[in-house]
Design a protein around this nucleic acid. Structure first.
Lengths: 233, 233
DNA sequence: GCAGAAGCTATTTTCGAAAATATGTCCTAT
DNA sequence: ATAGGACATATTTTCGAAAATAGCTTCTGC
């Protein structure tokens, strides 16, 4: 267990349990906690400086997110990574992302266009500064997430947006897994720009088809470079 | 607070926390715990016979399901019912239910057809026995849920099926709310049979259009008979 | 009369000990 | 040798007390 060391308390939320949930989530998504790894309370206590109860609450939250699995009376483990799970996430994401992007294109106004363009711009600037493998760079990850969030931000469905956010995180874990072994990052700049342009142009058919391919090709890349890490099938 | 009295321990799961999660969920879906009602630990302790910690874990789980809302440092409340939320759930359900039904029609074999027909048959028998308002009857509720589950059971996506199950529960709470005030139950028998027939006939377009209307009309009925209970807008 | 502080009460949140359960080891009988 | 049982250890799960926080009431100064 090489979890994040004890940082400043209550970085993310008002309560310790919420804070630890976020930190555990980050550690799992970043694969600092390895897929399938048992999450034992003694070790977590040491790493996060919280009691059984608080940790238990955090793990229960993450179980709902699909990042942790619980076996009753036998504790918690980091959710394993499998090709079936990756396929499942990818298919579900395309369905939901396409729906939300369509709605955003229909509903978005000036502010939406500005948000999409500016988040993409920021992402581009970060990529210029770091020509290497930026997927491991947290700054890039945040900007990347914010661009995709901006695209769907006018979907007007809290439920669907919540599901989308959760799936994005589960997928991000697989991306991080593959990034460890990918020699050079594939060029997403062009893909992102094309999606932005189609969205701003209100070309729903093109934009959704591009986002569909974007999600699928990301998933294919994971299979290509990290298949040896995926258990099952 | 008129929650379910302390029943036999560990009815649903191996651990007490999981058990209490299920019981609390049932109480919320059945509206025995009213929407918006504060869930105070002293009262819950009395009603469920568990400690702070265990209750906290259960409430955290239900927060992820959208049946409970948490305000940090200010405790938990039963999720309020609002027209916006009902619309959101309904729209999201149609999207996901249509997708899963299409996939089931494409993938389902003999076993699937048998499951769909037999669950509908059971539902019909229960409705015959109880010509009144059967929505309040737990036996009917289980059979109704099992019929709809059977329809989508070959959707082959654990993630999507999990989301569907969660949304079904959230919608069920609204149905129960409206059932309290609806004078006579509308006749769902015909609707259910038509959906079953279209599904078995592998008429995807018809089946999905029927399920879409089925979900929307259920939602409309809630608005019709329980609008005075919905806060916001 | 009222704003704001200070203290008191109600409630949530966190903790570490104790109970319950699972897992591993060693012994015995066949 | 091996299956099965009994003990010992490791780990999770649950509990109630203690700490932290929010909300309410009262008091004071203007």
């Amino acid at each position: 267990m090489t979890a994040s060391a004890v940082k400043s308390r209550k970085e993310f939320g008002k309560t310790l349990a919420v804070d630890i949930t976020h930190r555990l989530r980050q550690d799992i998504v970043a694969c600092r906690l390895k897929p399938g790894e048992p999450l034992k309370f003694d070790a977590l206590k040491l790493a996060f400086g919280a009691s059984f109860t608080t940790l238990r609450e955090a793990l229960t939250s993450l179980t709902a997110d699909g990042l942790v699995v619980a076996e009753e009376q036998r504790g918690f483990r980091v959710a394993p990574v499998t090709s079936d799970d990756l396929i499942d996430i990818t298919e579900t994401r395309t369905l939901i992302e396409i729906e939300l992007l369509s709605r955003s294109i229909a509903n978005g106004g000036d502010d939406w266009e500005i948000a999409v363009m500016s988040t993409l711009h920021r992402l581009g600037r970060i990529e210029e500064r770091l020509p290497g493998n930026h997927v491991e760079n947290p700054e890039w990850q945040i900007a990347h997430r914010q661009f995709h969030e901006a695209l769907v931000s006018c979907g007007r469905s809290p439920t669907l947006l919540g599901i989308r956010a959760s799936l994005f995180e589960r997928a991000e874990r697989y991306r991080n897994l593959s990034a460890m072994f990918r020699p050079q990052p594939r060029d997403k700049v062009g893909e992102h720009r094309a999606i932005m342009q189609a969205a701003i142009a209100r070309d729903t058919a093109l934009a959704t088809s591009l986002i569909d391919r974007h999600i699928r090709s990301t998933s294919d890349n994971v299979v290509k470079y990290a298949s040896h890490l995926l258990t099952e099938s």
